[in-house]
Structure formats: structure tokens, C-alpha cells
Design a protein around this nucleic acid. Structure first.
Length: 236
DNA sequence: AACCGTTCCAACCGCAAACGG
DNA sequence: CCCGTTTGCGGTTGGAACGGT
């Protein structure tokens, strides 16, 4: 049985694959490695070409529009990565899947953590306030707010002078119509009224721990997206 | 500087669908 | 149809890079 190389591709292998496909095109993945002078399986060659070498691939971080599209399509299609990829030219199913698992999965529908830049500083300063310093949406002189107005819909969470929860608002998801509120020293759990005008049920958990991490749980995509965009803008 | 835990992504694997003789 | 082969898909993982101690 012939030796078959596995693992990371070398630049030389990449060049052989590119040269071969540019000259002869793709005709049969399982036979072509031999002709291209590659000790790889056809499967490996196909994957390398589709996910990394194809000239029309878009490289670099996902744009806000792409992130939004991935989130919305995942909501409607689930883990149909290839179907989602068809809507994002230049992005591969593997790339979208990786992006989802590394950046979105831990947040979407479960939890968003907006962390302070330095836990040490937060602890030293001994200040019980969120370390997010976007232009505060001031409701009163002593209020502190997390402001998400830099995305299309306005959302904010407001704290009073003791950094206790005051209110949260979202243009599309009116969580101010709260029917249930559980509040202990660290956690505020809010549940919006499922009977309210918005069709999507939602809940928001606000968690403030000793280091002033702020975590928001939401099953609402729009609300989550606001948080994602805010955090992204702040490079948190 | 060394170590260790975490994050991220390229690439693998197994399986299913599609193809074609 | 049937069956062997090829292609495509989604889940998983190995290891490099990074950050914290």
C-alpha cells in the first residue's frame, strides 16, 4: 500500500495542487493526487482546495453582516453548514462551522460574557460597576448603563448608583414587560411576558460577579446580536 | 524563563448521498 | 434495481499559538 501523507500541508504540496488544478481542472478527486505528484488521499486534496486554496475564497475575519447572516440562518436552518455557506460567498462550510463553534455557540441561546479587560484591575479598584465604558446611556446622574446603541436596535441595561439593576430595554424585544424577577446578591433573572406583543419568547439573565463580569443570557437573537456587536466594537 | 491551561482552526474521520456501469 | 465508487457533509480532534501565573 502506497504511503499516504497526513497532517498539515506544506507550501510545496499546496503549489503542486494549485498548479495541477489550474492546468487540468478537477476531474476525479480520488485519482488526481497521483497525477499531481501528491502523496495524499483525494479526500484530503479536495478539502485543502475547497477550504483553503480556491482562489475565490474570502480570507480574514467575518464582517458584521456575515455574522448576522450566520446567526439568523443558524436559527432557521440549524447545523446545515453547507446551506448556510451558500449564502455567504467566499466562506466555506468548515469555516462557518468553526466560527460558530468558537465564537457563537457558547453565546447564542445561552450566555454572553462581557469581560473586563483586566480582572486584576477590577478587583483592585474594588468598584462594583461594569467595566464597559461606552458612552453611558444616562437615565439619571448616578446611573450606570451598558449601552448597545451602536447597532441597529437600541438596547441598554441600566444600573442605579449602587449598581443594582434598574432596567433593560430592547427595541424589538420588550423585556421591560417583566413578569418575573429573581434577584439575589449576584444574579438578576428577568423573564419577559410570553403573552406580550412580541412573538418570540425570551429571557434575560443578568449576572454580576465579584470581578464584575457581566453575563447576559438570551434566547433572542436580536438581543444577543446587539451584545455581540457591542463587545466586538469594544474589542473586549 | 518555564510551565500550564485555554482557544482556535486546519484537517481528519465516519457516514450518507449521489453517481454510474 | 444493485453494487461499487466518488463526492459531500457534519462532528471531532491534534497541535500551534496565545495568555496567565
Amino acid at each position: 500500500m502506497d504511503y499516504v501523507k497526513k497532517g498539515a500541508w506544506s507550501p510545496e504540496e499546496d503549489q503542486k495542487l494549485i498548479d495541477y488544478i489550474m492546468n487540468y481542472g478537477v476531474w476525479n478527486w480520488s485519482h488526481m493526487p497521483k497525477f499531481a505528484g501528491l502523496s495524499r488521499t483525494g479526500k484530503s486534496c479536495r478539502l485543502r482546495w475547497i477550504n483553503y486554496l480556491k482562489p475565490d475564497l474570502k480570507k480574514g475575519p467575518f464582517s458584521i453582516e456575515e455574522v448576522e447572516l450566520v446567526i439568523r440562518m443558524y436559527q432557521s436552518l440549524g447545523n446545515k453548514w453547507s446551506a448556510i455557506a451558500k449564502e455567504l460567498p467566499g466562506r466555506t462550510d468548515n469555516e462557518i462551522k468553526n466560527f460558530y463553534h468558537t465564537h457563537l455557540k457558547k453565546h447564542l441561546g445561552t450566555k454572553v460574557e462581557v469581560k473586563p479587560k483586566s480582572r486584576k484591575k477590577a478587583k483592585q479598584s474594588n468598584q462594583k460597576k461594569p467595566l464597559i465604558t461606552t458612552s453611558p446611556n444616562i437615565e439619571g446622574p448616578n446611573d450606570q448603563s451598558l449601552d448597545f446603541t451602536n447597532s441597529s436596535s437600541s438596547s441598554y441595561i441600566t444600573f442605579d448608583e449602587n449598581y443594582d439593576f434598574l432596567e433593560t430595554s430592547n427595541q424589538e424585544n420588550d423585556v421591560t414587560s417583566i413578569v418575573n424577577q429573581v434577584h439575589d446578591e449576584n444574579i438578576v433573572i428577568l423573564e419577559s411576558n410570553p403573552e406580550s406583543s412580541t412573538s418570540s419568547s425570551s429571557s434575560v439573565d443578568l449576572h454580576i460577579n465579584d470581578f464584575m463580569d457581566v453575563s447576559v443570557h438570551s434566547s433572542n437573537v436580536d438581543f444577543w446580536l446587539d451584545l455581540y456587536l457591542a463587545a466586538d466594537n469594544l474589542k473586549i
